[in-house]
């Protein structure tokens, strides 16, 4: 039920947003940018509304979305974990951290856990090489990490999210 409601909400919001674009030729990419700006990604339901409102087949919308790296097709997750694999962090053992995230959460670069809680992304230099290897979680920086720290970080954020959002 909750899922249906959120799908309906996505459809409504997309429809409102598209009033600005729907009668303009060649506005598909701009419209998709707006949709991603609103939801953080481009949901399937929003694509369907876009197809209908703008008279563009889904096949073309999806081709555009998968062609441009910028567009995301899945909700990015509530806790965004950025693991730096820049030169310094790489030498200091970033791969070990990535392996640890994979072992704990089953995540590889760009993936989100099924419950939508954690999202993992590999980034290049964050500009604090003295702290290598570095992890940033929702803006909080963790330095000089070992694979054992990964478990602690995950536990910390699980707890935090349970407290603040009840998930």
């Amino acid at each position: 039920m909750a899922e249906n409601e959120s799908q309906e909400k996505i459809k409504e919001d997309t429809q409102k947003l598209l009033t600005k674009w729907k009668n303009k030729r060649g506005a598909l990419i701009m419209a998709l940018h707006d949709i991603q700006g609103l939801f953080g990604y481009v949901p399937w339901e929003a694509m369907e509304v876009t197809a209908k409102e703008m008279g563009v087949p889904m096949a073309r919308i999806y081709a555009v979305l998968t062609f441009y790296n910028y567009f995301k097709l899945k909700a990015p997750g509530k806790v965004i974990i950025s693991v730096c694999d820049g030169t310094a962090c790489h030498i200091k053992g970033a791969q070990g951290l990535l392996d640890a995230f994979y072992n704990c959460l089953g995540l590889k670069d760009g993936q989100t856990t099924e419950d939508g809680l954690f999202h993992l992304q590999v980034v290049r230099c964050l500009g604090c090489c003295g702290l290598a290897p570095v992890i940033v979680v929702n803006g909080k920086t963790y330095g000089k990490n070992t694979p054992a720290d990964v478990q602690k970080i995950i536990a910390e954020w699980r707890e935090k999210m349970a407290e603040t959002q009840g998930v």
Binding site: A59, R60, Y62, A63, T66, F67
Partner: peptide, 25 residues
């Protein structure tokens, strides 16, 4: 599929080495 039949089931998705033919989604 797209221009003769106007069905638009198939399209070219992704880019570079990942480019492939499939329906949307």
């Amino acid at each position: 599929c797209q221009h003769i039949q106007n069905v638009w089931a198939l399209s070219i998705l992704d880019r570079s080495v990942k480019t492939h033919i499939a329906p949307a989604g």
